[in-house]
Each structure stands twice: as C-alpha cells, then as structure tokens.
C-alpha cells in the first residue's frame, strides 16, 4: 500500500469542505494532481495544496492507497466521504462528516470528531479514538436508510442521535452516550460500554442495543422479559432483556413478532433493575474542582463543554444539572 501524507500548513479562515481527501480521489494521481484537487471554503474554491503540504504517492486504486492527514483539522469537514477502499489516518480532530456515506476501507481518527460522521455508511470501518459528537452513524435528513453496514468504534463518548434509522452494521461506544440511541432502527447492533441517558431504542422496530453501564431512564414503552446469559462485544455476563418499542409497528417472522431489544448488563452485585432510573450522585473532589476551574479560567464554558472535560479528564459522567450548578458556583466565587 502506498501512502500520501497531507500536513496542514495554513489554517482556513472559515470552515473548509474537503471531500476530496479520500483514497478514491487520490488513487493513480500524481502529487501535483492531488494538490490541484478542489476544496471549498464558503463560496470560494481553493485547492488542497493551498492548505496542505503533500508528500508521497498514492496506489493505483483506492484499495492500495493510504492517506495520512495531520495538523489542526478542527475546521475540515468531509474527510473520507464516500470512500470505497484504502485507508485514511487522521492525526488530529477533524470536524463534521468524517466517513459520511463510506462504503469500504478504514478511517482511523486519533482525536475527536464532530457530528454527522459515518452518516449513511454502508461498509468499511470508522475508528475514532476520542469522542464523537451527535448523529454518529445516523441517516441523512429525511432518509429512512441510515447506517446499513460496516463498523464504527468510538474510544470515548458519543453524543445524541447515535445510529438514527440504523438498518445494519455495528457501532461500539466504549464510553457514554447522550440521549436518543438507535431511534427508528430497523436492524444493526449498538454496544454501549458506558452509560446511557434516556430514549434508548425509542421507536425502534428491530435491532439490538447492549448497554454495559446504566440507563438513566428506560422508555415506558419497553417491557422487561427476563434475563439471558450472553456476550456483547466479547463481554459475557447476565443481561436483562427488554423488548420494544411497544408504541411502534413490528413485523412478524414465522408467526412471531419481532421486537427491538435492549440488553442491559446485570452488575456483579446481581442487581440491575435499580440501575434503571437511579441516578447515582457523583461528587467532585476539591482537587478535581480546582483542575476544572483552571482549565476554564477566564472562559464562559457551556455545560456540555465542562461535562465533556470532566468525562475526558476524570472518566466520570455527571448530570448536566449538577454541572450547571457547579458552573454557577465557579462564577459566583469569581
């Protein structure tokens, strides 16, 4: 596999759209040709070489092309959009739509990604070491065909609307997720190793959600049907099985109604039922509080920002209300 390296040399003034950063676009091109590929900033057209130093050569096809992108990529959208093969390694934290509509190949992001990544994905692998924001592996607006295949793995947390309209494939989140998981799903598998909040599996017709941590609030339209010994992403144990969404239509197979399923891991203490709803109150130590204060000194952070920071730094998830109060406290003390 041949490698092309892109190193950002100039920050774009506005956000940049760079769907041309894809093995499919680079394959069999000279580095001049790659440099001349268009990128867009608002209503202006530029070229890749305006913003990136380009070295190395691509393979003959997408499948034997690897791209390594590095630099401050927080204003770069659409990396790896629609790619069908090869590899993209992102050394940084790109903006929205990473791997949107990708059909094959691998994208590995060493940092965080913003929203709408892996949208409408049909195949390939999207690996995110950090956190992902909202609508990961979701459908484009209005489309009833969300993620249909492939695999997404998030090292950290994911935001809201994960796996909206999912139809196939697999998403694994090692951290926590925000509200609305696999809404309208008609297939596929979601594994959440941390905690979930509410609206897990809302309006789900079919598909499986595994939650290894807690669900803050279960949908009232889900029904507990018993425990099962199973494995979720290699983690075996006793899981509560919930079926739903009972507000939704469901198909039948061999006379039996097919529901969406939530598998909720029973804790080693043998208890799970209480974990539903019960929000454990986590207290921040004074030392932790000080760290947070220092990190945001002179800034006006939003709740989600602080919450993400706490989650990233200390690996704990506290409720927004609590974060909000803490921010108030900080401000009052100033």
């Amino acid at each position: 596999m041949d490698t092309v390296t892109l190193t950002m040399k100039m920050q774009p003034e506005l956000y940049m759209e760079a769907e041309t950063i894809s093995p499919d676009q680079f394959a069999a091109k000279s580095s001049e040709e790659i440099g001349a590929l268009p990128v867009y900033m608002g209503n202006e057209h530029h070229t890749l070489s305006d913003f990136f130093d380009i070295s190395g050569n691509p393979g003959k096809t997408a499948a034997d092309t690897k791209i390594v992108v590095s630099g401050d990529l927080t204003k770069v959208k659409y990396i790896g959009m629609k790619m069908t093969g090869g590899e993209v390694e992102v050394l940084g934290s790109p903006d929205m739509y990473v791997g949107a509509w990708m059909a094959g190949g691998t994208i590995r992001v060493k940092g965080n990604v913003d929203s709408f990544c892996g949208m409408g994905m049909t195949g390939g692998e999207l690996l995110i070491d950090g956190n992902a924001k909202n609508y990961l592996g979701a459908a484009y607006r209005g489309d009833w065909r969300g993620m249909q295949g492939g695999r997404i793995v998030v090292g950290g947390n994911a935001g809201s609307d994960l796996a909206l309209f999912m139809r196939g494939g697999e998403i694994i989140v090692n951290g926590n997720v925000d509200v609305h998981v696999a809404t309208h799903a008609e297939g596929g598998t979601v594994v959440i190793k941390g905690n979930a909040k509410s609206r897990v599996g809302g309006q789900m017709v079919k598909g499986d959600i595994y939650v290894l941590g807690e669900i803050e609030r279960m949908m009232p339209s889900y029904k507990y049907i018993g425990d099962e010994e199973i494995q979720a992403d290699g983690i075996s144990g006793t899981y509560q099985v919930w079926i739903g969404d009972l507000g939704e239509r469901h198909g039948k197979r061999k006379g039996e109604t097919i529901y969406g399923k939530i598998y909720l891991k029973v804790k080693d203490t043998g208890k799970a039922a209480e974990s539903v709803r019960a929000a454990r109150k986590i207290r921040l130590s004074d030392d932790q509080k000080k760290q947070i204060k220092d990190a945001f000194a002179g800034k006006e952070p939003g709740v989600q920002e602080v919450r993400a920071f706490i989650s990233d730094t200390f690996g704990i998830d506290i409720k927004p209300m609590q974060v909000s109060r803490f921010i108030d406290e900080m401000r009052r003390k100033e």
């Binding site: 929203s115 709408f116 924001k133 909202n134 609508y135 935001g159 809201s160 609307d161 925000d178 509200v179 939003g302 709740v303 989600q304 927004p320 209300m321 909000s324 109060r325 108030d328």
Partner: peptide
C-alpha cells in the same frame, strides 16, 4: 437559555437549569 442544539439547529429554549 441553553444554546445546546444536539445538532438539530434548535436551541433548548425550554428546560435550562438556572439558579
């Protein structure tokens, strides 16, 4: 009020924790 949109474009005008 909360400007959190959950990437829907809509701020959360209703339901902001305040003191």
């Amino acid at each position: 009020v909360s400007d959190e949109t959950y990437s829907t474009g809509m701020p959360t005008f209703k339901g902001t924790p305040v003191t």
